[in-house]
């Protein structure tokens, strides 16, 4: 079994290591230890600026920095980076298409004990609606690191989402030659009966679900869509044409996130039965992460169950 690490660890490590090769600044809002920008701060204190508990200001400051031609990351919890500062992001970064990387860590249910006020399951939906915004949700620590380097070579606003909770570091084992590319989905496993399209924390559970299904003789394709926008709809469509049924899996509201994006894309191109696994229009709550994942249906078992249903819907069509 792969070792487990939270994607935010990959973010912190990438900032600190890439700080040598790339010239950029990092802003945080009194959460440097948690978001892992603290790792960068330790190495490059002169390039790190704490903005205090004032996220709206931090986002607009980042816009001003970017307007002078510098690359900049602005990090907080997803709730406050994308949630509180939505309007600052839209107007001060999105509209002038500035080169700011907004980072939201501690997203959604796997925040655990802090509960609903901190479990942002709406950030990807918010960010996805902003014209020109690139939205990325990496699946493991390796991909998180790669995503940071990718956005450093990208021009325009980006939102990066990282998690608090450790997740198996699958990439090195499953895809040793992996090259992260913004907007390019990754097929982890080929299959013919159903496509499971997942991202972030749900990717390793999608692979588990595929194992469960394989034991029943069902062949599931597993695709990691780390970039929700721009969406790799070509890859998703090709898979849907092959399997005829889709299940999406995300640690986010089923409204406005990956599931919604896949449904929108497939409806326009090649409609097939598509079922969504995600947070079902609910607030989170306090608890231990494994228990919460069960309560909210963010499990391999639920993905497998939805896959069976989606397959059944094919013949019912």
């Amino acid at each position: 079994m792969a070792d487990k690490k939270a994607t935010r660890e990959g973010f912190g490590a990438a900032l600190a290591e890439l700080g040598e090769k790339y010239d950029f600044l990092v802003l945080d809002a009194d959460l440097a230890a948690a978001t892992k920008t603290g790792v960068f701060k330790k190495k490059y204190p002169e390039r790190f600026f704490d903005c205090g508990i004032a996220e709206g200001n931090m986002i607009s400051v980042a816009a001003g920095i970017a307007a002078t031609g510098k690359k900049v990351f602005a990090a907080s919890f997803a709730m406050f980076a994308a949630g509180r500062s939505f309007e600052q992001i839209r107007n001060s970064i999105g509209y002038p298409h500035l080169n700011v990387n907004i980072v939201g860590t501690h997203a959604s249910i796997t925040v655990g004990e802090d509960g609903a006020t901190h479990q942002c399951s709406e950030d990807l939906a918010l960010m996805r609606t902003i014209p020109g915004m690139t939205v990325i949700c990496p699946a493991d620590v390796t991909e998180a690191y790669a995503a940071v380097e990718a956005v450093l070579n990208h021009c325009g606003p980006c939102y990066l989402r990282f998690g608090r909770y450790p997740v198996p570091n699958l990439t090195p084992e499953l895809l040793p030659d992996y090259k992260f590319e913004i907007g390019k989905g990754v097929t982890y496993r080929e299959g013919s009966d159903v496509s499971i399209v997942a991202n972030g924390y749900m990717v390793h559970l999608a692979l588990e679900a595929a194992d469960i299904l394989a034991a029943e003789g069902i062949s599931a394709e597993v695709i990691n869509i780390h970039t929700i926008k721009p969406l790799d709809i070509d890859l998703i469509e090709a898979s849907a044409r092959k399997t005829g049924a889709v299940v999406t899996a995300e640690e986010h509201s089923i409204i406005g996130g990956l599931g919604a994006a896949v449904c929108e894309g497939l409806c326009e191109r090649y409609p097939v039965p598509t079922l969504r696994v995600g947070v079902e229009d609910k607030f989170g709550r306090s608890g231990q992460v494994p228990e919460l994942l069960e309560i909210y249906g963010l499990t391999a078992g639920n993905i497998a169950a939805k896959a069976r249903r989606a397959i059944a819907m094919k013949s019912a069509k």
Partner: peptide, 19 residues
């Protein structure tokens, strides 16, 4: 700087001054 939403321009100006 693009402005119009009140309260944000001064923050952007801070970012420029810092830079």
């Amino acid at each position: 700087m693009s402005t119009g939403s009140l309260g944000q321009g001064i923050s952007a100006a801070c970012g420029m001054a810092l830079s």
